[in-house]
Amino acid sequence: MQEELAGHGLTIIAVAIDSDLEAVKEWAAHAPELTIVIDRDFTVAEQYGIVNVPATVWIDETGRIVRPADTAMADDRFREFAHVDSSVHHGQLRAWVNDGVLDLDEAAVADLMERPSPELQQARLHRRIAVALHDRGDVDGAREHLATAAELAPHDWVIRRGSLPMNDVDPFGAQFLDLVGVCLEAGSPGYRLATGREYPGDPKPA
């Protein structure tokens, strides 16, 4: 995608919302063509209202957000699980980059930005402290702050999923699946825009 659209003026910045530098390096090795940066304190996630991954935000040539954070899959590897058709986002992206076509006006984009609650902002700060303590080797201290963050923002995917590795929990194991259930039940499906979202039971394209 980067290769195809770079000539048409698109730069992709892959922001790893991740505190584990080694894990990021391992994944990054698979995409040497991309500009990859690491957001250990989740500050960019906070500034752009990114509440789950993978997600994309579109920024135009004048530095304005023209499409808010939304789930976007690179391919259909996780389609059975996430029920997202990656081609929908890809089609919209090509239309924007090649022809300047946007399907949301400014008011719609502003409305869809994920504004935080005071509790979520506090949870994010507790998480920053947890990362710093974990770096110092204070694992118990880190877990205390992660626990407080989870209490403050029980349905925020980035806070909850993003804390599994520091709690020594398999990020794709049983606790992750429990968490998915809790978030979905609470009406926090990850993003409001839900581009390409299929709902289980929808007819699958042939």
Partner: peptide, 10 residues
């Protein structure tokens, strides 16, 4: 034009 692609190892 910039596409921010947020991803993670988790």
């Amino acid at each position: 034009k910039v596409l921010l692609l947020a991803w993670s190892s988790w």
